[in-house]
Write a protein that binds this DNA or RNA. Structure first.
Lengths: 334, 334
DNA sequence: TTGAAAGCGCTACCAG
DNA sequence: CTGGTAGCGCTTTCAA
């Protein structure tokens, strides 16, 4: 039962003070090369693997844990490929700094808010949520750094994500090229997730910022293509499922081009209407296989960058990149 | 900048000793009801949310973190629905005990072994790996509790998982009901993941315990159905992908029943050979939709139970349940 | 550039 | 059932 060596043990073996060992690990530039080498050798020979984290936490107030606030049930987040890629990126960044992950659900139950309030973490990364989510205020009130993917923007919270409005405009322009009767199939407007078709809805009526931004971009593309937004049917799918895309498409039987909020919905649309021009979002493998025109972005990179910023490894969050993938759907000519 | 109250603050406010507050949180049954109530009231009024974890860790040696050792790259694990469900279960158990998650990759690089050796966690949950994985020894050598899903069995490591051999036998019996020329499409035999077809391979040649157990179960079903195992072609798919199932099926064009190691492979087989009798494994949603006969098990439950055991919340790991889902493929009569 | 002292907040141990 | 004492391993602060 040999207990692990402490900093004091290393100091004794190296013939220096405990402080010199501490400095060697925390501010190596502050100690002389000779000290650094003595400490390194002593640590090696004793099998010392670095400062004990609990002690360091107690003294410094850092927890070495990152809080990740996901959707309602953790399982749902895992089933969403985009959220998953985001989480992978976060996990990767945590690995680099030996940081633990605390996965926190975000149902609207008070207990989830309490959990965030009291979480023993150094900061939070949130998955996009509704504009009026009380979680936003709670996260900020902890005084810890907070970063959210996809919005909403909120005072004190750093954003990571692409310019959804600009990307939606770009993919909309591509999708409407030869269209006479376009339509949109969108994510739900709010947490009620009601399936309904509305002509020319106000994007800002959506409490999901991502939904709102994409609608606004589509609207701009539609208007630039010479249509009146109020003539365009927008079907809000109750869930981001292929089957819902198909169901929506059947309600839009007279339309010749359909802009979709996700590849999943777009593939469903193609299932029901193989003839129609369709655009998706996210550049999934299935989208590539189906030849779908779509918006590509790396949620993995965004997760990694968000985590790095929260953990203090990175000073700034690099601008998230996106690109348009033009493929055979929609057909090049009508 | 009001700093958070400490146990001593609560003790002072409640008019008791610090120790009584500590006991109230850690062994409530040891303190009188009166004390408990005084402490509760004082904590409430001060906004004390429980013992500081770093201090508790430092004193008790507990880290309040659980190590989860997954496959080579974390991303791969997230893309595997079964590993994902397992991880969801673990995450849920961690939530209950306010425990952080440290996700650790398991490539064969030494750095991953070092990471596990030095991980600041109270125990490990491992995802199934090859029988000769050095990670097993490393995890055990930490002296911390270790539980592995799916095997291999290893001294000092707790197992969680179903009896793959028995389940394979059961689903094999169902799948071979009217077969004259059966075949098997299996997971890879070892980490080389070579795609090949072998007649009557020795199950124990597989370094993946799950692969070996399922093959052994299939073999028993095959032999009981009156075939010689050495006459049965077993195609090892290089990856657990639908496309690989289809590719394998094309190589088994003369076969009338195919037992598969996963739903994914089975669906691929059906893509290429809609006429053939097929069985899968895992009871995915797609399997249900396709009417596939398969083995159902809850990796979520297994993850939750494994984590509870490692964290000391549960004394024993409940036996993992499985059931046979008999559906229209294979057809009831030839 | 190095070091001594103090103490972060808590719980193991022992005493009553 | 309750409480005092000691100290977990480290880093902040101050001094040399």
């Amino acid at each position: 039962m040999s207990t692990r060596p402490t900093m004091a043990d290393v100091a004794a073996a190296a013939g220096v003070s405990t402080m010199s060992v501490s400095y060697t690990y925390n501010q190596p530039s502050r100690v002389s090369k000779a000290t650094r080498e003595k400490v390194g050798a002593a640590a090696e020979s004793l099998g010392y693997t670095g400062p004990n984290r609990a002690a360091r936490s107690l003294r410094s107030g850092k927890t070495n844990n990152l809080g990740v606030v996901l959707t309602e049930k953790l399982t749902y987040s895992f089933e969403n490929p985009q959220a998953r890629a985001f989480l992978s990126g976060i996990a990767e960044a945590c690995l680099d700094t030996d940081t633990g992950l605390v996965l926190l659900p975000n149902s609207r139950v008070g207990v989830d808010l309490d959990r965030v309030r009291d979480a023993h973490v150094d900061g939070f990364v949130l998955w996009t949520t509704v504009v009026d989510d009380p979680m936003l205020e709670v996260a900020v009130s902890t005084g810890k750094p907070v970063c959210i993917q996809g919005g909403p923007s909120f005072p004190g919270i750093q954003l990571v994500g692409i310019d959804d409005r600009a990307a939606a405009h770009a993919v909309g322009v591509a999708g409407l090229k030869n269209s006479k009767h376009p339509a949109v199939v969108s994510f739900p407007r709010n947490r009620d997730r009601i399936g309904e078709t509305v002509f020319g809805p106000d994007p800002d009526d959506s409490t999901f910022p991502v939904t709102a931004a994409r609608l606004a971009g589509y609207r701009r593309a539609v208007v630039e293509a010479g249509f009146a937004w109020s003539d365009i049917p927008v079907t809000f799918a109750p869930a981001n499922l292929r089957s819902e895309g198909a169901a929506a498409a059947r309600q839009l039987a007279d339309r010749d081009a359909i802009l979709c909020s996700s590849d999943e919905l777009a593939l469903g649309v193609l299932d029901a209407r193989p003839d129609v021009a369709v655009t998706g979002w996210d550049d999934s493998e299935a989208a590539e296989a189906a030849g779908l025109t779509t918006v590509a972005q790396s949620l993995y990179d965004q997760g990694r960058d968000a985590a790095r910023w929260v953990l203090g490894t990175a000073e700034v969050i690099p601008r998230a990149q996106w690109s348009l993938k033009i493929r055979r759907s929609p057909p090049a000519d009508g």
